[in-house]
Design a protein around this nucleic acid. Structure first.
Length: 425
RNA sequence: GGGGAGAUACUCAAGCGGCCAACGAGGACAGACUGUAAAUCUGUUGGUAUUCACCUUCGCAGGUUCGAAUCCUGCUCUCCCCA
């Protein structure tokens, strides 16, 4: 049995740990769980820290439980929230749960080993709970004073919070108790913002005389520039390829800042300590090669989206950012082309107009709405900022049938990074 | 209730009768450099027009004037001081 706590420690994934936890983990196979909140129909990279915690937990020989919050999702966790949350309908929650389950299965081993992962839904044990039973059997053990002392509650006393959210910690606490009784789960893990909720659980277990329970939290990751991890300009980075294309996903990791990717690789990579330390050392020697970002992006993209999608993402990146020429672009078949430019804004133009040829400014401003006005389009062309099919164009450019790729497409670039795929039909 | 100051483009902020599509700063976008980075340098930043030029914009509505962001009147809103 590997030392799980040590593993988290060198990876920088240990924030807080209850006394006795490490001893327990080194003594026997432990069942531990982390809860996931079904407020979105996909997990995002922000959830990956927790997923990886479970992965390392399982790799150390322990038994991971992923709890999806069918019940808690109906209440709303006030931790770290400054406002009361909107409640989702039961249908939305169920849909979200199913999607998240499928994603968890990509990371954890659900086979037939003693320490195979399991997914549980707390709605299963809460759905038949009677309110009176709950407040008698559970509420009796936890005082309001204790609940009020939690940061998640204290921080909201000024702005106000509903009774519903106030009770959240009891519900989550009861989850722990239930898993402790039903599955001998002795450890709950989570982000450091969950410490309060988790200790309500250990407290409940202790007061109900049910035995020992332990807790461990991971730090919340922040980016070096202080902004929130897990978001790009376009918004959240999701694990669902429908919501964030594998290409965008790959790019997200590839674009990580130098300072950040040293933290990330320890958290998100399954490589061992030696290998990671070597990579970091190499990265510091030659940061411009960005070995870390590449290793990180490749490993994670492959795990989440598979080898095929990773290769497509790399290929797309080479075409979009490498020195790919017009020839390389023309060599792509239609399917790859569309895959590469999935997520790029598209415009449709009538093919008839091509017979005459479309002057570049008209093409940019009127036919495709890439620019809102002709003047702006003209200035950008004069400023050497427009490429058609990877080649810079000047004011004399006229778009004709010769420019079509696969007889249907014209790739337009504003600057280096903004692509527009024009579809002729 | 009394007195004062102000409202300018994405934001801040000049301009106070013609030279104003409006100084400057920030932001944004693009170019060079670079690592698909940071920093730096350069350009663009109301619309139409290849040029001349024209149109629309300085809180809103009127007025004075050959000509108004600029002067006058009314209105709306904001801030400050005294009660």
């Amino acid at each position: 049995m590997k030392n799980f706590v040590d593993e988290l420690r060198w990876r920088g994934m240990l924030h807080d740990i209850m006394p006795g936890t490490e001893e327990l983990l080194n003594k026997e196979m432990v069942s531990g769980y982390i809860g996931f909140d079904p407020t979105a129909d996909s997990l995002g990279v922000g959830n990956m820290v927790q997923i990886m915690t479970l992965v390392h937990f399982q790799r150390a020989g322990h038994k991971p439980y992923a709890l999806v919050g069918g019940a808690t999702g109906r209440v709303g966790d006030p931790s770290g929230k400054s406002q009361e949350r909107n409640l989702l309908s039961p249908e939305e929650i169920n849909y979200n749960l199913e999607r998240q389950k499928a994603q968890l299965e990509k990371f954890l081993d659900f086979g037939n080993q003693p320490n195979s992962a399991e997914i549980v839904n707390n709605y299963d044990w809460f759905k038949d709970f009677y309110f009176l039973d709950f407040i008698r059997d559970t509420g009796k053990h936890i005082s309001v004073n204790y609940m009020m002392a939690k940061d998640s509650v204290k921080n909201r006393l000024e702005s106000g919070m509903s009774f519903t959210e106030f009770t959240y910690q009891l519900i989550q606490g009861y989850d722990f108790y239930h898993l402790h009784q039903a599955h001998q789960v002795k450890l709950q893990m989570g982000g450091s913002d969950q410490w309060g909720n988790i200790t309500t659980g250990t407290e409940l277990i202790r007061r109900k005389g049910a035995g020992e329970a332990f807790a461990l939290t991971t730090p919340l990751i922040k980016k070096a520039d202080g902004t929130k991890f897990g978001k790009s300009e376009k918004g959240n980075i999701w694990l669902d390829p429908e919501k964030t294309s594998p290409y965008e996903f790959y790019q997200f990791w590839l674009n990580a800042a130098d300072a950040d990717c040293q933290t990330y690789i320890k958290i998100f990579s399954l490589k061992d300590q030696n290998e990671i330390e070597t990579l970091i050392a190499e990265h510091q020697q030659e940061p411009h090669l960005r070995k870390l970002q590449k290793a990180l992006a490749e490993e994670i993209t492959e795990r989440v989206h598979g080898k095929n999608e990773l290769e497509n993402a790399i290929e797309a990146s080479n075409i979009l950012f490498g020195n790919a020429t017009e020839e390389a672009l023309r060599k792509l078949n239609e399917k790859t082309l569309l895959a590469v430019f999935a997520g790029v804004p598209q415009h449709e133009v009538n093919t008839q107009k091509l017979k005459e040829g479309i002057p570049i400014v008209e093409f940019l401003a009127e036919e495709t709405a890439i620019f809102p006005s002709k003047g702006e389009a003209r200035k950008m062309v004069q400023g050497n900022g427009i490429s058609i099919n990877k080649s810079k164009v000047g004011m004399d450019k006229v778009v004709t049938e010769e420019d079509l790729i696969n007889r249907k497409y014209v790739l337009t670039q504003r600057g280096k990074r903004n692509y527009f795929l024009i579809l002729f039909n």
